[in-house]
Computed example of a mutant assay.
Amino acid sequence: MPLHYEVPEPLRVPDAEFDENHIAVLLVVGNRYGGQWKVDVLSQRERPGEVAVLGTIEAFHDHQRDDLTDSPRYPQLGLDTALIWLLAEAKEKGWRLLSWENVSDQVPEDARKFTIGARVALGGDQFVPAPAVVYADEALGISMS
């Protein structure tokens, strides 16, 4: 079950983020402040001295469940919420969620309850699916049509 979330910065992926195969590989990074996650979708294209934020959500627990923030599952709930948001955004824009990889294990262990991360690949509106390949949106049981 995802957390409640708000979208202060809607997802905007410029055409330049997509490669010649209409695929954009993006980074999802979340940081927790108290019980609230701020999750940004970032460009992975190199821009010296610049981090391009392509969208942001703020996710938070039901305040009747204050014990939830102490749960070891809370970071995963933050990532699950970002995934749900990205699936909805992709569907709305006619894109495909091709892959989703949790990379939180690359965060130092003592910071994992406050920092989350994932790598995501999106297929743009001109993306041509390969035959017989099951993409993340299908594997998660989300109809993209």
Score class of each variant (00 low, 15 high):
Leu79Gln: 02
Arg119Ile: 13
Asn21Ala: 11
Trp95Met: 03
Glu50Met: 14
Tyr74Gln: 08
Lys91Gly: 06
Gly30Ser: 03
Pro72Leu: 08
Glu20Asn: 10
Thr69Phe: 13
Gly94His: 06
Glu58Tyr: 08
Val51His: 10
Ser43Asp: 06
Gly78Ser: 08
Asp67Glu: 11
Leu83Cys: 14
Ile116Arg: 04
Tyr33Phe: 14
Gly35Lys: 06
Arg12Leu: 13
Trp85Met: 02
Ser43Trp: 06
Ala52Asp: 12
Ala59Gly: 03
Ile84Trp: 12
Val120Gly: 05
Ala90Met: 04
Ala118Cys: 05
Leu26Thr: 00
Tyr5Met: 04
Leu87Arg: 05
Arg112Phe: 06
Leu11Ser: 02
Ser99Cys: 09
Ala88Thr: 14
Gly123Met: 02
Pro14Glu: 05
Glu58Ala: 09
Trp37His: 06
Leu79Val: 03
Ala88Gly: 14
Glu92Gln: 15
Leu27His: 13
His61Asn: 11
Thr56Cys: 10
Ala82His: 03
Val41Ser: 05
Ala111Leu: 15
Asp67Phe: 14
Val28Arg: 00
Pro75Cys: 05
Ala121Val: 05
Ala24Asn: 05
Leu87Ile: 07
Thr56Gln: 09
Leu97Cys: 03
Asp67Gln: 13
Ile57Trp: 00
Asn31Ala: 14
Gln64Asp: 15
Leu77Thr: 04
Pro129Arg: 02
Glu46Arg: 14
Thr69Asp: 14
Gln126Met: 15
Thr56Asp: 07
Val13Tyr: 01
Asp62His: 12
Gly30Gln: 03
Ala52Phe: 12
Val53Glu: 11
Gly117Ser: 11
